[in-house]
Write a protein that binds this DNA or RNA. Structure first.
Lengths: 344, 344
DNA sequence: CCACAGTTTGCAAACGTATGCAAATTTGAG
DNA sequence: CTCAAATTTGCATACGTTTGCAAACTGTGG
């Protein structure tokens, strides 16, 4: 082992300075003369020295690690967000420690405890909710938390989401404009703010436009549940001619079920609109009309909020909502629909 | 802040023992009397004490962090692997620190340096290659490395892959059996062992069966490149009647291009076979015949190899290949094909 | 009741870095 | 060239844990 463990002391010895000098050269805010910097950098380079982050973390309390708690990775929206978050944080000198929380609540508590063991500088939660006392614990420990793509009432945590209510409204406008009059909704999980908000915006806007309340089934953000919901909807005497599905992941399942299992045409028999605009939505097989969640902007906002809170613990809690456009594609055409009674 | 920083010393004081006793209670291998354990655990619980991992990491050199270097997350195979790896490692008390390597080689070097800063106990690389001197550096630093879903020649690193050569052969057998005689291949990136091995198994087996060498285009594991390759193949005077595409991710693009853009029928005009069996392959829109990569087994083998190497640095380097079945689906039916001259 | 082996315990010294403090050095103005 | 102000430097300590060592304690057979 030629280059096993090089400490700042060895570098100091070789550079002919004190250990503190070496430390200062590698500490951003510290003062050192140009001459010292030069000598130390040279010696460090020759020995292949790099500061030991663990030692540094212990003394400063800053690990430069961000804990990410994530539940599902099968909805492509999250892997993408993870990738972008990781890149954005790497650019700032942070890295992501991943914690997968199958789902259950008590697991989240245990996970946060583990996170604190690692002295993480901040926590990002994605597709998962934290209990109130847990957030209290984080606050007490002084760990900034930002919720990504999920809000939570009655908890003073920063959160970044897309403008879900506005998105739901856009879809209502779009479907009404396109001439649909039997409109249904397979909603996102009603236990999540995203699911509720999208549904609320959608239903409220339909009501404003004088449309009857849409039939709604909770799809639970689950493919099978969404497929079952689609079957239920279409088995009725007067099936819908348009369905807003609470996210793209479920929308794909719904389209598969309609086309493959029920022999229906999308969009001719039923128009389908999703939410997220994951890459697959643009694939020809689905060509899904959907509302885009601007991942990059959401990621940037999340990172900014977190970094700000780490730098200044007094930074205020904020709820950021980022608006995303409706992307019209083939599964729900934009133009006025020719009158057509669909199935019946 | 009620519970800010509780150290082992405070617990010791409250429990009426020495600080070392507290440490020993929380250190698996250490000895402590039942009475002491009881007292310490009680005091720790009352104060909400948890050992500081950073301090522990500094002194033992073990961080219980595994570095994961991953390039793309848009091929669903990797998010799934990440999720499974994270779960498997969490079960062993380890966690994953994510490093996204866009792709470039020099980035990987920098990333490994950063990894070493964090004193990671081990490294898993997925969809990315390490240079030889880099592996030397890791070996020198005593950091075990396991390559996931990628082999590398001339480098003594442990690697876990599926049986790619065998998989390629299975596909050759399958397509020949189904009666195809104009067989082409849009290969995985030839810079990767997976791409090369699948191609080799496929081409070798076709030759063994007395078939002419298939036409091969490198799809680079990229959707656009694969689509372009599909266009090129089908634009020929005698287009293929079956294409083996190097992974599912590209196969979806190929199917979209064939059906949407070229107006061809899959499987009637061209049969398509993929590789990976990501969840989307089972979706009705694609219903893709493919060779399954047994993610769970691959993950388990990876974790086992890594843990073994961490526990015992002398553990031998191993190459594990796990065989996966061909999953027949609609994109390339199993039964004998009725004679049919396809396009021409 | 004693000697002895086996446990358990506390003491103190690490681990590698950051940082307050005071001494030493450099800088700049007059 | 001188002196004060500003900057740089080294010393020593602290961070929270693990661990070798020797002392104290436990239980056992004679």
């Amino acid at each position: 082992m030629p280059t096993d463990k090089i400490t700042s002391l060895e570098v100091a010895k070789r550079a002919g300075v004190s250990q503190s000098a070496v430390s200062r050269v590698f500490t951003p805010g510290a003062s050192a003369s140009a001459k010292t910097i030069e000598k130390v950098k040279r010696a460090a380079a020759e020995l292949g020295y790099r500061p030991n982050r663990m030692a540094s973390a212990m003394i400063t309390g800053k690990s430069r690690i961000i804990g990410l708690i994530v539940a599902y990775l099968d909805n492509m929206f999250y892997p993408l967000a993870l990738e972008r978050l990781s890149n954005a944080l790497q650019a700032q000198g942070y890295h992501i420690l991943v914690f997968t929380a199958s789902n259950a609540q008590e697991r989240v508590d245990e996970i946060v405890a583990e996170l604190m063991d690692y002295q993480v500088d901040g926590i990002i939660t994605a597709s998962v909710s934290m209990s109130g006392d847990l957030t209290a614990k984080c606050a007490a420990a002084g760990i900034p938390v930002v919720m990504f793509n999920r809000g939570q009432d009655g908890v003073d945590l920063s959160a970044v989401t897309s403008a879900n209510v506005a998105g739901g409204r856009k879809i209502a406008d779009f479907l009404v404009q396109a001439g649909h009059n039997r409109i249904a909704h397979i909603s996102g999980w009603q236990g999540s703010s995203t699911g509720r908000d999208r549904q609320r915006g959608f239903a409220d806007r339909l009501a404003e436009l004088g449309h009857p309340a849409p039939q709604i089934i909770d799809g639970m953000y689950d493919r099978d549940t969404a497929s079952a919901a689609a079957r239920t909807l279409m088995a009725q005497p007067t099936p819908p001619d348009a369905i807003f599905v609470g996210n793209d992941h479920m929308a794909f399942a719904v389209i598969d079920t309609l086309r493959g299992e029920l022999g229906l045409r999308v969009p001719q028999d039923v128009a389908i609109v999703g939410y997220d605009d994951v890459p697959t939505a643009a694939w020809a097989a689905y060509d899904l009309t959907t509302v885009r969640q601007p991942v990059n902007q959401m990621v940037q906002a999340t990172v900014d909020l977190l970094i700000a809170k780490i730098a200044d613990p007094i930074a205020p809690v904020r709820r950021v909502e980022i608006d995303g456009p409706l992307i019209p594609r083939g599964s729900a055409p934009q133009h006025q629909r020719t009158p057509h009674e669909g199935l019946l």
